[in-house]
Computed example of a mutant assay.
Amino acid sequence: MGRRFSRIKEGQKLADAWTAYVNYWNTASTRPSRIGQGTPRQLDAMCFIQPFTISVNVGEVVSAKAYNDSYTTLATYINASSVAEVSNNIGASTMINIPKFRPARVRWQRAVNRAISTPTSKFTQQEYLKYENVDSFSCPFGATADTDDMIDSFLDVKARVLAVTGFEVSRVSLTREQVGIEAA
């Protein structure tokens, strides 16, 4: 009989969360601004890659950005792959602009210990699980040749990153390459 009414309990919990969420945004003008209280952003590393989904001429690359820490952490694993690469040196290549282009990105979240806390959301007043002391890195990557597949390249990089020891939490994810359509 406990499972029979579980959706009702869940519905009430979601209704309470929605009410708290609406209340949070309705009282936004009463809260002080926190602009300028955060930490400054890291410097960006300019990266150069060859796209997976768009054919470019030999020697042409597109640019992308990554934070310096992210680039230095992930470029080693990306460039160790035979089907993915990223460089912060344009060399003899020519940079081209592809409108509405977003490169593929690998994201690595890691933590030495699996320490979990249950903070309360300031938006919904509901508790959620959160890993403590998680480092997060994100870096664009591209193909080494026209025939390289984005998923195969990502899986190769992911295997290299997950082989790194010393972290109880190690999650690797892919943000796929995106190409927008220009209106005529």
Rank of each mutant, 00 (worst) to 15 (best):
T118A: 10
A84E: 06
P51F: 10
V62D: 03
T147G: 11
W25E: 06
S93M: 04
D146T: 07
Q126C: 08
S93K: 10
N23Q: 14
V61C: 08
D148N: 13
G2I: 05
S29I: 06
P99Q: 10
I181F: 06
M95L: 12
I78H: 03
R4I: 13
L155K: 09
N97L: 14
C47A: 09
R176I: 03
G2F: 03
G91Q: 13
I151W: 05
Q178I: 14
V164W: 02
I49A: 07
V61R: 15
F137W: 03
Y128T: 08
V157E: 01
M95H: 02
Y21K: 08
S29P: 07
V172K: 04
T120L: 08
D146H: 08
T147C: 05
P103G: 12
R171N: 13
T120H: 04
N97Y: 12
C139Y: 00
S82T: 15
A45Q: 14
T72Y: 07
V83E: 05
S117F: 02
N113K: 14
S87Q: 12
K122H: 05
C139A: 03
W25N: 07
I151F: 13
G38D: 09
E60W: 01
T76Q: 11
A66Q: 01
A143C: 02
E85A: 13
T76E: 11
N68W: 00
E127I: 11
A111K: 00
I8Y: 06
S170K: 00
V161Y: 02
R41K: 11
Q50H: 10
L129W: 01
S82H: 08
S153V: 00
R171W: 03
S93V: 00
D149R: 01
V61L: 13
A17H: 03
S87W: 03
S55Y: 02
F154K: 10
I78L: 09
Y71Q: 09
A28K: 14
A75P: 04
G59I: 09
T39A: 15
K130Y: 02
L129R: 11
V22P: 00
G180M: 07
R176E: 15
L129I: 02
V112P: 04
R7T: 03
D69N: 13
A64D: 10
I78D: 05
E177A: 10
G38R: 02
T53Q: 09
W108F: 10
T73K: 07
S153G: 11
R31V: 13
T94H: 04
V157A: 06
S55V: 10
E10N: 15
G180L: 04
